[in-house]
Amino acid sequence: TFYNFIMGFQNDNTPFGILAEHVSEDKAFPRLEERHQVIRAYVMSNYTDHQLIETTNRAISLYMANL
C-alpha cells in the first residue's frame, strides 16, 4: 500500500520523511487504501500545508512508477 511505501521514509530528513511522520500520526489516514485517487483526495481534503500536499503528489507518482 501507499502507507507502507511512505513509512519506509520514516526518520529520513527529507520531504518524504516529513510526510511519513505526518501520515504515521494521522489516525484517520487510509492505511489500507491502494487507489492513489482516494489517497490524493484524502490529503487534499485533510491537509492544509501546501508543501505536504506537493510532497504527497510526488510520493504517489514515485509509488505508482514502482508498482
Rank of each mutant, 00 (worst) to 15 (best):
I18C: 08
Q10E: 08
V43E: 00
E25L: 15
E33Y: 03
F5L: 01
M7D: 00
M44D: 07
L67H: 12
A65K: 12
Q37M: 09
K27F: 08
T55P: 02
N11F: 12
N11D: 08
R31V: 07
T14A: 04
S61C: 14
Q37E: 15
Q10M: 15
S61L: 14
L32A: 11
N66Q: 15
S45E: 14
V23Q: 03
N11Y: 12
K27S: 11
I53Y: 05
M44Q: 11
N57I: 14
I18A: 12
T1G: 10
D12S: 14
Y3M: 01
F29Y: 04
I6A: 01
T56G: 06
H22Q: 07
N4Q: 13
I53N: 03
N66E: 13
P30H: 03
D49K: 05
M44R: 07
E33N: 04
D12Q: 14
R35H: 09
L19P: 02
L52G: 01
R40Q: 11
V23Y: 05
P30T: 03
M64W: 07
A20H: 03
N13L: 08
A28D: 14
M7E: 01
E21Y: 13
Y47N: 01
L67M: 13
Y3S: 00
A20T: 03
K27Y: 08
T48R: 10
R31D: 03
N4R: 08
A20Q: 04
T1Y: 06
S61T: 12
L32I: 06
R40I: 15
D49S: 08
E34V: 15
R31Y: 06
G8S: 14
N57Y: 12
G8H: 11
F9A: 01
K27V: 11
I53E: 04
A28T: 14
V38Q: 08
R40N: 06
F9T: 00
Q51A: 13
D26I: 05
F2E: 00
F29M: 04
P15W: 09
H36S: 13
F2Y: 03
N13V: 07
I18L: 13
L19A: 01
E34N: 14
F16T: 01
I39N: 01
E25K: 15
V38M: 10
A28F: 14
Q37T: 12
A28C: 13
L62E: 07
T1M: 05
K27D: 10
D12N: 10
R58E: 09
D49R: 04
L32V: 07
Q10Y: 14
I60D: 00
E33K: 03
F29N: 04
S45F: 08
M7Y: 03
I53C: 06
A20M: 04
Q37V: 08
G17A: 10
L67D: 08
F5G: 00
R40L: 15
G17S: 08
N13D: 13
Q51M: 13
G17K: 06
S24N: 12
S24K: 15
I60P: 00
N11T: 07
I53P: 01
S45H: 10
T14G: 15
P30V: 07
V43I: 11
E33T: 06
Y42P: 00
A65M: 12
L19N: 02
E33L: 03
T56P: 01
